[in-house]
Design a protein around this nucleic acid. Structure first.
Lengths: 197, 197
DNA sequence: AAGCAAAACTAACAACTGTTAGTGGAAGAA
DNA sequence: TTCTTCCACTAACAGTTGTTAGTTTTGCTT
């Protein structure tokens, strides 16, 4: 079973290059011949490593989903105030993204090209994740941590919109570390732009 | 030249259907035969109305860009505080989006499939628009309207991320009107989630 | 040296891509 | 009627798509 390792390693090499390509051109516009060229092989050779183009997309999307959920589960365990929990949740999300910005971008923008039933499964995972954040915000409102007049649905969508576009504009050679960035983002969303009196 | 009108009307019908299709499937995955089918005609017949597939995308992207810029120009004229200007800018942006959510989604997600030199032009328009918002925020910091410790680049990217995902989740049959939504969004970004004190 | 598995190759497929050329019908204007 | 304009059609093009079958090369392990 030593072949499993080297196989995985080469397979992962293919998947990583695919992620770059899918991010750059989008899933549909990226052809298997493009991908092969990036790896210096023929298109048909890809199929020694993967079953299909969509299998690559599935792997990318569901692996990221797993990481996001694991991060949130850690945060939910902690016994802290809602606003602190939200802060930690945001930082965790940013850190997972930063660990693989390329896959994150694909996860975000290309998941819609999954076919059924995978698309359905993916969307269910996603809505569950979002709802868990929504619960944190609702708890925060109950406890007086957050304002009572905010619309939780709007808040949570705004939150994810902000988070999810990060891969598009965050460059890894930036001086700012992901955790710092997460902190700032959380601060901005929680406290707003306005001077507090 | 009376034909220009009726031609335009039919052409616009094609473009609107194309926008729906591009939003649904993405530009690359949407074929001209798909589009033709939606209109109940043959694919080749489309070329009586448009020059190419990309011409449709160009029209959608640049028409939206024009509307966004016009809205912001109106706001910039007003003599109000920076935070008020930001609020108005956000509301304006949301209203332009709400006027055509489908085109907005295409504008946002599919513009990268423009070929050169149109892509370059588009991105220049976009960065100019963003920078004008950034200026408003900087003015707000100088005047003491906004906190001095915020990162303007991060703020403005967060702002646009929040705004731009609206077409993805806002449904036109929602009870909330666009202006109200813009108000709430602006309020959330400016004041944050947290209870003041 | 022999064997084995991983990973590449060539050749080809059926389906689909955007687009052009040329044609014809329908409707209103002259 | 005849002319014109719009709008659709059929047929076909050259190129690209994901994928397969079958074969050969490569490099390690015995």
């Amino acid at each position: 079973m030593a072949e499993a390792l080297s196989n995985l390693s080469r397979k992962e090499q293919v998947i990583r290059k695919a992620a770059e390509l899918f991010k750059e051109k989008g899933y549909s516009a990226a052809s298997m011949r493009d991908l092969a060229q990036k790896l210096g092989i023929e298109a048909a050779s890809l199929y020694s490593h993967i079953k299909s183009k969509e299998e690559i997309l599935r792997t990318l999307c569901f692996d990221m989903a797993t990481d996001f959920r694991a991060s949130l589960s850690e945060v939910e365990k902690k016994k802290v105030t809602a606003s602190e929990k939200l802060r930690l949740g945001i930082i965790g999300h940013v850190q997972v993204m930063a660990r693989d910005l390329t896959a994150s971008a694909v996860f975000m923008n290309e998941h819609r090209h999954l076919s059924q039933p995978y698309l359905r499964d993916f969307l269910l995972l996603r809505i569950n994740y979002i709802n868990r954040f929504k619960t944190i915000i609702e708890d925060g409102i109950s406890s007086g941590d957050f304002r009572k007049d905010i619309d939780t649905k709007l808040s949570v969508m705004t939150l994810f919109s902000s988070l999810n576009w990060m891969p598009a504009w965050f460059s890894p050679d930036s001086t700012i570390e992901p955790e710092k960035l997460g902190q700032q983002l959380a601060d901005m969303l929680i406290n707003g732009l306005k001077q507090n009196r």
